[in-house]
Structures are given as structure tokens and as C-alpha cells.
Write a protein that binds this DNA or RNA. Structure first.
Lengths: 229, 229
DNA sequence: CCGATCTGGTGACTTTAGTCACTGCTTTCT
DNA sequence: AGAAAGCAGTGACTAAAGTCACCAGATCGG
């Protein structure tokens, strides 16, 4: 029978962070790695909790978000297999800056803070990889700030739709997220998502059929994004 | 006469990033470091430009910001002596995500991308320091997102005022920034800053006398921050 | 199968944000 | 000194954003 650490090593091997490690090194790391399954919607940790270590998504998807006192949520990122979570808070000693839940049945690895720091000291290539990942994260956060500061809900919704369509590499995609969830991702409330979607449909920029969204006027949508508001 | 590289080493010694290096190592790094003076308002680099290396503020202060197509600005951070600039874009190969200008006469060090990466490989403690700095940066960006997404201009203005007063550790401080600049820092426009300041004064939360701002009702201001909007 | 919960649509409204235009006050440059 | 540029205040808007309340259809557990 396969030992569970060898399957952990397989997962580790596929993550960007540890691609530089040899099989033996992966095996050694695997012995210090926990693996756990999560139900959809399960909480990994809450904003403000002290940071115990970093997580790596093995299967499923997780949602990193902030919650306002009034109960509104702002999604910072959705991460899928191979992505690491909280790789930065691990280093500065502070608490987790945001909360994380799964969005579907998921499996995650956990590496304790101490172990991960030791690993970065031993293999500087890993530290460089972390910095690379952190760079990408920082870019996305700056992008969110840019959108929140400079654009309207309509603009953000359009850019969300175009991103989604591009991800599915077609002019049509299935809307899996609820309006509520979409609102949290673009930084607004449910009602405005509903209204703006209806308006985009009325203007024949998009077509909506159940949960299927079709882009009818790509040029028009792109023109709105690039036009100075 | 003192060689210029030895004075560079002195500056390097005082930056958080290189505190782990020995004097000899600092001297070696200093030979690969450029130092330059900048006039106030001078541009270090623009958003979108390819990232050539990282900067370290030796004297003065710099302003990291995004610009909208319509000409609005959103400040991401103001950095003073000892801080590094663009330590993350150096690693992910992408362009600078924001623009940087000085806000006063300044002096900065520059380390080329290649040299800095090599340094991180050779001294993993430096990489860990960079990660620590990056963690703090990430926290601040998340904080900006939180404020933009959940709060009003009034709220952000109050929290700016309290931050400023705390930095001066008193109930009174000099408003050095123009309303325009303050607007860029809290993500709005000049007119709203002017109006909200006037309103806070009318409500006797603060007193304004020329460029001197005095906090008259600290409890009231703090209560507004913590009240659920 | 049926009540309960979740999700989406929408009218009517309030509040906040942002725009435009204009004024007056400083500061600075030559 | 005088022109020019920059900064601040404000009235009058427009337009976005957000709130509240309510309805209707879908879905799901027992």
C-alpha cells in the first residue's frame, strides 16, 4: 500500500513553489506536511487569527476575502490547485489579513510556519519562488484597488464578464457564482449586479439564458472598458 | 577623502533589508549600488515600464501611486528612509505595477535586478527580509481595498486624520499635503476633501487654523470609525 | 409533496460621490 | 509690482451607489 506521504510528495511536486526540489527533498518535506479534506464553504481560517502556517490547494478552489462590520464581503482572490495561501503572512509575524473558505469540496496541504521558514533558508530558490508568487499577488491587489478607486460597478462587471469569457476561451460561459458572490468579487451589492446585468442585456451587449451568459457585442464591451469615464 | 561606496555602505546598513549583512558584505554590495539625488516631484519610473531593479530611499520621501485614464490618482504608499521600492516586481519579471515620484528632495539607491536576485540566492536571510517587507506591503494594500470597498469618503478622511495625528503623537498636526494630494491618498477628489473637512469642523470634531489641524473630539471620531455604516 | 431556504428581479427611495463652473486667496517668478 | 499658477471654498447639479421592502420562482431536505 502507498504511504500517504508519498502521495503528498506528488501534490507538492506539482505546486509552483516547490518545483525546484528533488524527489528526496520533496519526500522529506512531505513528512512535515499535513493533508486534509474540506467540505464546500468550510472555513480554513479567519482574518485576524494568528498565522500558523501556509496552505497549498491540492484539489478544489478556495476564496480569500475580507468581511465588513456590516456583513459585506470583498473577495481578494480565488485560488485553485497548485496555489499557495498565506505565503506572505507567514513571514511578517502578523495575523492572517483575510479569511479563507473553500468554494467546493477541496483538499489542502498545510506546512507549519517554522518548517516553511526553515525550508526557505535551506533552499533559497524556494524563497525566490515565494517572492515571484507574492509579486503576482501584489499585482492583483493593486488591480483591485485601481478598479475600486477609478471605475464604476458597471465597468467592473463588464471586466469580470470579459475575464470569465476569456477563461472559458469562448463568447459564452456558465455563470456559476450567484449574484451575491459576484457582488462580493467586484465590490458591490447583489442588487446592483442584478440591475447592471439586466441593463447590459437590454442594451444587447450580452445575452442571458438561465445561467448561460453569451457575449453579443465584444467590441462594445471592450470600448466601454477603454473609454475614459 | 571618503570614498562614495563607503557612504553607500553606511546607507545600506541602515535599511531593514540588509541588516543581516557583515560590513565586508555591505561593502561588496555597495560597489554594485548606484546612488542618485532627485528633485521634489521627480519621476523615478512609470507604471508599465519594465522593472530594472529595486530602489532604496536614503533621504526624503517617495510616493507610489496609480493614475487613471481620466487623470485621477490613487496613492498606494508613501515611503521614507530605509524603505525599499519595487522589491516584488523585481522577482516576477513583470513591469512596475505603479508609478513613483519623490515628494521632497530625496536621495535613493538603486540595485539592478540581476544583482539583487543573486544576493538573495547567496544570503537567504535577505530573501526572508524581503518577504517580511512584502508581507507588510500586502497588509497595507489589503487595508486600502477594505477602506475603498466598505467605507465612505468621510470615514477614510477621519481615519487619515487619526493616523496623521498618531504619527505626530499629539492632538494637533500640520497639514502638509494639499487637498488634492489628500484626495489621492484616500481615493476621492479634491472637492470632497474640502467639503468633508469643512463639515468635520462645523461639527466640532476638528479645528482648522490655516494648515494646523486640531482634534477636538477624539472619542467622537473614533466612534464614527467603529460604528457600522 | 410541501414548507423552508436560497436566489433573483424590481420599484421607490436616500445617500454619497463626483462634476462643472466660478470665486477669491496665496505664492512664486521674473 | 504685476502676471501667472496653484490652492481652497462653494453652489448647483447629475449620476452613481446603496438601502429597503416585497414578490416570485427554484431547489432541497424531510
Amino acid at each position: 500500500m502507498m504511504s500517504s506521504t508519498s502521495s503528498i510528495a506528488d501534490v507538492l511536486k506539482k505546486t509552483a513553489l516547490f518545483s525546484a526540489l528533488s524527489d528526496a527533498e520533496l519526500g522529506s518535506l512531505a513528512t512535515r506536511t499535513l493533508i486534509r479534506s474540506y467540505a464546500p464553504g468550510e472555513l480554513l481560517f479567519s482574518e485576524g487569527t494568528s498565522c500558523e502556517g501556509l496552505y497549498i490547494v491540492s484539489k478544489g478552489r478556495v476564496r480569500i476575502f475580507k468581511t465588513s462590520p456590516a456583513g459585506r464581503e470583498q473577495v481578494l482572490a480565488i485560488e485553485g490547485p497548485g496555489s499557495s495561501i498565506a505565503e506572505l503572512p507567514v513571514f511578517d509575524g502578523g495575523p492572517y489579513p483575510a479569511s479563507v473558505t473553500t468554494v467546493e469540496p477541496s483538499e489542502l496541504l498545510f506546512i507549519a510556519r517554522k518548517d516553511f521558514r526553515a525550508l526557505c533558508m535551506e533552499y533559497p530558490e524556494i524563497a525566490l519562488k515565494v517572492l515571484e508568487v507574492a509579486g503576482a499577488r501584489l499585482r492583483r491587489l493593486v488591480g483591485i484597488i485601481e478598479e475600486l478607486s477609478f471605475t464604476t460597478v458597471r465597468h467592473r462587471l463588464i471586466s469580470w464578464i470579459l475575464r470569465e469569457a476569456k477563461a472559458e476561451s469562448g463568447s459564452s460561459f456558465t455563470l456559476q457564482a450567484s449574484h451575491q458572490e459576484l457582488a462580493a468579487q467586484i465590490g458591490t451589492v447583489r442588487e446592483l449586479v442584478s440591475r447592471n446585468l439586466a441593463r447590459l442585456q437590454a442594451q444587447e451587449f450580452i445575452g442571458i439564458n438561465g445561467h448561460q451568459v453569451t457575449i453579443l457585442n465584444l467590441e462594445g464591451l471592450e470600448a466601454e472598458l477603454s473609454s475614459v469615464i
